[in-house]
Design a protein around this nucleic acid. Sequence first.
DNA 1: ACTCCTTGTTGAACATCCTTGACAGTATGA
DNA 2: TCATACTGTCAAGGATGTTCAACAAGGAGT
Lengths: 193, 193
Amino acid sequence: MSGFDVGARLKQLRLKRGLSQRELAKRAGVTNSTISLVEQNSVSPSVSSLKKILDALPVSISEFFAGEEIAQEHIFYRASDLTEIGDGKLSWRLVGARRPNRSMSIIHEHYPPGADTGEDMLEHEGEEGGVIVSGTIELSVNGDSQLLTAGDAYYFDSRLPHRFRNVSDGDCVIVSANNPPSFADGGNHQHHG
Amino acid sequence: MSGFDVGARLKQLRLKRGLSQRELAKRAGVTNSTISLVEQNSVSPSVSSLKKILDALPVSISEFFAGEEIAQEHIFYRASDLTEIGDGKLSWRLVGARRPNRSMSIIHEHYPPGADTGEDMLEHEGEEGGVIVSGTIELSVNGDSQLLTAGDAYYFDSRLPHRFRNVSDGDCVIVSANNPPSFADGGNHQHHG
DNA sequence: ACTCCTTGTTGAACATCCTTGACAGTATGA
DNA sequence: TCATACTGTCAAGGATGTTCAACAAGGAGT
């Protein structure tokens, strides 16, 4: 029913890391039995268990399921089709979500007043750039902070520590692009409110 | 330590589709109670259950978890600093001009009524994507033509013949990205018309 | 052969998820 | 007001996931 071989995928990733079931289980905070059963598809793990396991690899859930995507090429995206992520404070709309075989990710971002990517500066591989469509945003990159308003833009190496914060009392809208699209790498930098 | 609000995310997507818990449950082959409990995070669904539910939306698992790991953007261009190119009809504003060592080009595009990239379809290496900020544009890619309006987006392989045309009587503004930067190497983009 | 450590697997007990079926709240209409 | 239909929630129990503890197989070194 799954259409996706969870067990094989997990085993593949585990072996790639050179871990035994017990070692992975220990790091993940589950038992070796769980790993065994999951790898044999004797059981469909709960999301929470799977998350624990993947965190120990580490692999993000979306990364784990990359490839589960329908291969159909999407060109046009209706506004309502953009994959919305965020928590009410920040709002990002991904064009085509994260298709693993695409070279960029395009994002329509909405920052309400007070929205903030967080005190822990973002740092990751790649480059990113964007244009402020409306409103005002405070962008800090590598210690330098600037207020950008409609029509302004930015571009930088994503390895520089950076942060976005809407310090105004109006919404801010940005269209940005990331290359490469994979946000995931060693570090575990996720942020939510 | 989930770090990701499965319940809120599911509810968000369900409401976006205008479905009730029962309706979604019916399509997914689970019960309304399951949806309810998952949305309240009273339970961490099994992967198989979650998959059934997401298939009914439909949303891929990796799409669902997009944002579970996030990183963002960056570096400072005043609106007046964007290098403007164009021929009076079309107007493109490049972020960071033609830096040869950048992996993308970010472009703020303005299409007045009648603006048209030309009858000779554009074709070049790379990929491009963008978000329509305001107005309406007719985008043709590989024989398929669509009218996109504010909030809509697109993404395609640039080798597919494509054309942008503003067939409305108002301005259209787009923020787009190219990879590799097609303007960095004096690509065949400009002129025509 | 043994001992010791490691590997992955499995049965029974336990914990969690999922369904059944009922409940309360809201809205519409007779 | 009652009836109907819809919404989301919840308790109980059956179904499924997870753990505990034991097991067999393989290697390394007595």
